[in-house]
């Protein structure tokens, strides 16, 4: 599995797509922090106190961090490139024939692809937050909180958001294996958060909130989930992840490749 991880990272390093994704991520963070604006698709009711704080005063570095967190919903779409390069190409260019006949088990294949995506998203999220902090520093902004809190927040947000984005990407792996189509699986990534959020607005199924992974990430980031509820979200997310990886392994084992 380690060799497969090294292989995927080597390939990512030699693909333009990853550098474009990196530039877009940095540029997005710079634009938000520098211009004191907030973007993204909000499907989560952001606490008004945060919104008021951002609209009323000169931003601190902490405000910049909050703004990029709120705007991070759009990053899921930017990161589709990682999904396409990491596993999509294997199926569109049929190079899985080389990979799966190299002696790697189906389990290692699926898990290593998931880990590659998770690590890449995590690194990009760290860069996203670091850029915001850097832009704040260059603009001589005050920190707003103490540095340890700020850095811990940046790290926590990166972990939480990466994890929840990776679950959607994990489900997309299953769709890719079932349909064999990058287009269908990429469209799924685009539509999944929108469909879940829209559904939860209309049908009022309370359990749906546990599958609204991206909103969950933001809710956790903004402390909108109480600690006694948090474990339920995390547990269900882990179960979905395990079921997703398990299904992917089962499908690829029985698929005519």
């Amino acid at each position: 599995m380690i060799n497969q991880l090294r292989t995927d990272f080597y390939r990512l390093r030699h693909t333009w797509g990853i550098y474009i994704t990196l530039i877009v991520t940095i540029a997005y963070s710079v634009i938000i922090t520098l211009n004191n604006i907030v973007g993204g698709i909000w499907v989560v009711p952001i606490p008004t106190k945060i919104l008021n704080r951002l609209s009323n005063k000169i931003w601190t570095i902490k405000d910049g961090l909050s703004a990029v967190s709120m705007s991070s919903t759009l990053l899921m779409y930017v990161f589709i490139g990682i999904f396409v390069i990491t596993i999509g190409y294997e199926f569109s260019q049929k190079t899985y024939k080389n990979t799966l006949t190299s002696g790697i088990t189906r389990f290692s294949f699926v898990v290593s692809k998931y880990i590659t995506m998770l690590l890449n998203i995590f690194i990009l999220m760290l860069i996203y937050y670091s850029t915001s902090i850097l832009v704040g520093l260059i603009n001589h902004r005050t920190v707003g909180v103490n540095w340890i809190t700020l850095l811990t927040d940046a790290l926590d947000f990166s972990v939480v958001i990466s994890f929840f984005i990776s679950i959607a990407f994990g489900i997309a792996i299953v769709i890719l294996l079932v349909t064999g189509s990058i287009v269908v699986s990429s469209v799924f990534i685009v539509l999944f958060p929108i469909i879940i959020s829209t559904l939860s607005q209309f049908v009022k199924w309370s359990w749906l909130k546990y599958f609204d992974f991206f909103s969950t990430a933001l809710k956790i980031a903004f402390g909108m989930i109480s600690s006694d509820q948090l474990w339920k979200y995390i547990l269900i997310s882990f179960i979905v992840l395990i079921l997703t990886v398990g299904s992917a392994i089962l499908i690829i084992k029985n698929k005519e490749l």
């Binding site: 080597y10 030699h14 190409y89 260019q93 049929k94 024939k97 080389n98 990979t99 790697i104």
Partner: peptide, 22 residues
């Protein structure tokens, strides 16, 4: 069926990839 390789990688990079993988 048909020989496969990553289209955007060079001959050498494709072989380096296989070397790492194996």
């Amino acid at each position: 069926e048909t020989p496969v390789a990553f289209e955007k990688l060079t001959v050498k990079q494709n072989l380096k990839l296989i070397a790492i993988q194996r």
